[in-house]
Design a binder for these strands. Sequence first.
DNA 1: AGCGGTAATACCTTGTCGGTATCACCAACT
DNA 2: AGTTGGTGATACCGACAAGGTATTACCGCT
Lengths: 297, 297
Amino acid sequence: MELRTLRYFQAVAEELSFSRAAERLHIAQPALSRAVRDLEEELGTPLLARNKHKVRVTPAGAVLLRETGVLLGLAEEAARKVQRTALGQEGELRLGYIGPPTRDFLAGVLREFRIRYPRVTVILEERTPERVWEMVLKGRLDLGLTRPVTAGERLGLETLLLREEPLCAVLPSGHPLAKVEPLEWSALRGQPLIVLARREGVGLHDRVLLGCQRAGFPPTLAHTPSIVGTVLTYVESGAGIGVVPESVATLAGADTMVFKPLHPVEPVSLVLVWNREHENPVGEAFCSLVRELMAAG
Amino acid sequence: MELRTLRYFQAVAEELSFSRAAERLHIAQPALSRAVRDLEEELGTPLLARNKHKVRVTPAGAVLLRETGVLLGLAEEAARKVQRTALGQEGELRLGYIGPPTRDFLAGVLREFRIRYPRVTVILEERTPERVWEMVLKGRLDLGLTRPVTAGERLGLETLLLREEPLCAVLPSGHPLAKVEPLEWSALRGQPLIVLARREGVGLHDRVLLGCQRAGFPPTLAHTPSIVGTVLTYVESGAGIGVVPESVATLAGADTMVFKPLHPVEPVSLVLVWNREHENPVGEAFCSLVRELMAAG
DNA sequence: AGCGGTAATACCTTGTCGGTATCACCAACT
DNA sequence: AGTTGGTGATACCGACAAGGTATTACCGCT
């Protein structure tokens, strides 16, 4: 049983005439007669009762006609779905991201993305930067919004640089260093520092250590919490000086803290990463949108 | 897009190997490669990503695989449904019948029918005998359980005689005629008769008139209600003598009435009728069952 | 009786599908 | 590193089925 045959049968059953149906199908009438006969033979039962001048559908034919309708409709729908999927207009996008620093960025892009690709379901997964890389590599994510990693994990992965931001010191408003301009890394010597735990992001953590090292002193880590917000809480409580990317400033509440870029600037960046091997058209669409929005401003 | 192509694609997508799939399909591998390539061209998008030694399904391919599953399943289901319908094992049976005299007969046959053909929905329509004939003729009923009609309405209709029963007089238990044996039509001369209304069944009504006429007297019709039960009520109330087919006795409650066949016997019969033009396999199945049950007893 | 229109049949042509042989490529194992 | 086995793709060929043309058989309607 082939769809072609079913289309033929449907035409005849609807027109109740072989010749008219043949015309509609742009084939010759005998070909149609044979096709229907073959179908009847295959199913082992007459579908159309033809008494020389009139064609009626038998009960079995009526059933087949009904089924054929849904079948052909579904087939067409399936083809369209496949094509939409290929164009990235349908399906799902598994998007991994790291916490707060990407949140405002994500919100903007996602809002626009949902408007342009309403049939795409976006599945968000918040993980540590390293875990995002790993999941993209394994194909468990289509796209990752994360920080660069030093390791060789990036083999075969494509990246797009989204943003660079300087590392900043976070100080209570009344802190003596809050007025120093520009603030140097060396000013942090001996100060109790509060930095995100290394397991929450090796790249960022090590970058802080590197800043201190370049300034020629070993950092004094007072606390290394797992959540960026906790860094700020420690700072507010006077436990020390936080070192975080600039974008974290958006998390800060009132004017109880100041964010001051550290010189010389230690940039940390935000990248979009994907796996060329497991390319997903939806991912491409998302990428293009990101590029477009960045170009627009 | 043809089902054959989809079956091929499904095999490859499931096996994730062209050669294994070809083996499973009992065709050569090159034919399979070409079929899939053609499908991809038709849909305008790659469905399988093959990097020389590994085959993966693309997102579009995954969508098609899912859709293909339901499509092929439905196609198979449709074929089975058609065949069952052709065998009378599925579908619906529109069955017309006349009131009480057929009810016990129907009950027995239907009980067995439902057991043997559980997927068939039986649609019952109670009408007057004439209306049943008309509906069968027009194809609005597959089968009718009714009384024979004198008219030429039976053109092209097939019938099967189910039962013959004599017309009976219904008398209150204490009636003088209740003891006469045998009871002759002529005994009804001058008696107030209660007969079903003519519009509820021309055949039956006229048969009663014919019985009187043959006995050489004009009937005195006291009442002609529309419902057989009402005839009995009249008799019980002493309004006169009812004349009904013998099977009506099943409607009578206690021993307040006696049913006595009238001599010479005026038989009325019950027939099954159907239209050869609008033959429905379910109808045939029902017919066969009826024949079988009659033969069995 | 004859005409117009129906579906079926007979026969031919062509396109498509499947098969065989072969190639190009990669991976794994000497 | 070279070899071997296994992968999918390509080229070519043959067979068969799908479609076309011509014709027939049959029916309803003038």
